[in-house]
Structure formats: structure tokens, C-alpha cells
């Protein structure tokens, strides 16, 4: 190394050396042997430094979650913070379309509370999906639901829950909507809701329940003050076994194979937290048998 270079590089030569831009022998001319040995050791050892593992997917989900719940007013609060302040429940199911709006989805057995911009709330049951457009919320209170949600609506303009099977419109009330393929159920816990299905409109008032299974409409009086699922139970009213099984599948992340031809209707309440208990209750009421093998349940006569 030439002397001029030394002067030019005097405050960066170590950086040059560790990057391989100047050689060991050149460095030895610039530092003592002892220093050189330490530098050499720093170079070797720092080669093996590492940072903790970074979970790309997990962090991306976290980001998406932060984006789903606009900071202003909407936020997701854990369910336990919520006592059972009862209101209305509507049940609706399956596919609604996707827009580029906010989407909140729950997984098997998961429940979430969603606060909307006007402080209306939705409690989403397991395996359900809620889609809405926060920017338009001021102008139009409208959201789409797949699965089941319990709505507590602040008084104000019309509030509409759209589903594949029909829509529910309310003016400040509490109701539960549950929907899946050909199943549509709405229970009004407070206030008044209007249910529209295929151009027919039904008005529900407090404790009215409405259910449509394959175009067979049932209405009854609900004794509950809030949907039972928010308190760890699921209740059914004259519901085909197929729908009961679907509901258990969503809650417990299992798969149920029904080997019976039974299409009896079930009325009763099942545990939302204990699968065995739920199966026992259900099968003894319906005089059926069940076997569990891992995540697969088989139902027989």
C-alpha cells in the first residue's frame, strides 16, 4: 500500500479490509500484530452472527389484521371483554362476494368482536366472514356476512346485512343472522328487523325467530336474550341434522360423516366447547351412535 493511500484511507482502512478490498498483509503494515489478530478474530466470529428467525407469514397476517381494523374507531376486542349484553342475532351463510373492502374472518372455533365506525358491534361466530367498506360506512350502513354473526346496531340510518340467502335490515336493534347453503336463520333480540328473501318481507320484533331451510319457513318465539353461542352453547330449533353437523364442524374443526339416512330435525342446545359432550347430547337425543377417530367423526344408527 502506497503512503498516499494510507493517508487517504486512514479513517476507513479497516472497513476496506473486512470487505476484502485490501489484503491481510496490507493491514499488517498498518496495525500491530496483536491488533491484527483481534481484527482477524472479529472478522471470523462475526461471520457467524445471526438474527432470530423471522416468521414472514405470521407477520404478514398481523399486518393484514392491523389494516382490517382502521385505527379511527373500529377495533377488534377480545370476546371476554364483553359480557352478554343481549340483543339481536341473525344467521346467514356461505358465499358473499368479495370487494376490495375490509374483510374480517374467523377460523374454526374462533369468535371475534368487531366494532364498526358508528360503534355498532358485530360478534362473529366460528368460520364466518364479514365484509364491509369503512369509507362508505357514513353514507350507507351495509355489510356482507357469510356464516353467523350477532349484531348490535346503534340507532341511526338503515343498517343492512346482506347474505347469499337474503338480507336483513334494521333500525337500531340486536339480532343474529346465520346462513349457509340453503339455510337462513334470523333471530331478533331487541327492536325490529325486516327480513327479505326472494321478494318476501317478514318483520320480526323482539324475541321473534325466523328460519328458512330449503324454502320451508318456520317462525317461533326465542326464549333466549342473546344467541347462546356467545356463551359457549349452540342451540337449534327444528334444525335438520345436516345443518347441526355443519355447525359442529365449524366450531370444532372436525369432519363429520353421516352414515345414516336420518334427516330428522333437532331441537336443543349443544356445548360449544366440549366436542364429546356435544356429540353425546346430540346422538342420545336422536338415538344415533358416533365414533371419533382423530378429526373424523362417523355417525351411525
Amino acid at each position: 500500500m502506497k503512503t498516499e493511500d494510507n493517508i487517504e484511507n486512514k479513517d476507513i482502512f479497516l472497513a476496506k479490509w473486512i470487505a476484502g478490498e485490501i489484503s491481510d498483509s496490507e493491514l499488517k503494515k498498518l496495525v500491530s500484530e496483536e491488533d491484527f489478530n483481534v481484527f482477524q478474530e472479529i472478522k471470523n466470529q462475526s461471520e457467524h452472527l445471526s438474527v432470530p428467525n423471522f416468521d414472514t407469514d405470521k407477520n404478514f397476517s398481523a399486518i393484514k389484521q392491523k389494516l382490517e381494523t382502521p385505527k379511527k374507531k373500529s377495533k377488534v376486542i377480545p370476546l371476554w371483554m364483553y359480557a352478554a349484553a343481549a340483543s339481536v342475532v341473525i344467521m346467514i351463510s356461505f358465499f358473499l362476494f368479495k370487494t376490495s373492502s375490509t374483510v374480517i374472518q374467523t377460523s374454526f372455533g374462533e369468535q371475534r368482536i368487531v366494532m364498526l365506525a358508528d360503534s355498532s358491534e358485530v360478534i362473529l361466530n366460528a368460520k364466518s366472514k364479514l365484509t364491509y367498506q369503512p369509507e362508505l360506512w357514513k353514507f350507507e350502513r351495509k355489510l356482507k356476512l357469510e356464516g353467523e354473526g350477532y349484531f348490535k346496531v346503534k340507532k341511526g340510518s338503515t343498517f343492512t346485512v346482506e347474505t347469499e340467502n337474503g338480507s336483513v335490515t334494521v333500525l337500531g336493534t340486536q339480532f343474529d343472522v346465520n346462513t349457509s347453503d340453503d339455510f337462513f336463520k334470523v333471530v331478533c333480540y331487541e327492536g325490529k328487523v325486516s327480513v327479505k328473501q326472494q321478494n318476501k318481507e317478514v318483520i320480526l320484533t323482539q324475541s321473534d325467530a325466523y328460519q328458512n331451510i330449503q324454502n320451508e319457513i318456520t317462525t317461533w318465539n326465542s326464549k333466549n336474550e342473546a344467541p347462546t353461542w356467545i356463551n359457549g352453547e349452540i342451540s337449534f330449533e327444528k334444525t335438520p341434522l345436516k345443518i347441526v353437523f355443519e355447525s359442529l364442524e365449524k366450531q370444532f374443526d372436525i369432519s363429520i360423516e353421516n352414515k345414516t339416512s336420518s334427516n330428522k330435525l333437532f331441537t336443543g342446545t349443544l356445548s360449544n366447547t366440549n366436542l364429546e359432550l356435544a356429540l353425546q347430547t346430540l346422538t342420545s337425543a336422536m338415538q344415533l351412535k358416533y365414533t371419533i377417530s382423530g378429526k373424523n367423526i362417523t355417525i351411525t344408527e
Binding site: 479513517d11 476507513i12 473486512i18 483481534v38 472479529i42
Partner: peptide
């Protein structure tokens, strides 16, 4: 490069 150089000087010193 300056930061790197200084970092190495300090590391050497501390070690």
C-alpha cells in the same frame, strides 16, 4: 465506510 471503520476500532478496543 467510516462508520464501519470506527465500529471495528471500538470493537477491538472493547475486546
Amino acid at each position: 465506510e467510516k462508520r464501519m471503520h470506527n465500529a471495528l476500532v471500538i470493537l477491538r478496543d472493547k475486546i
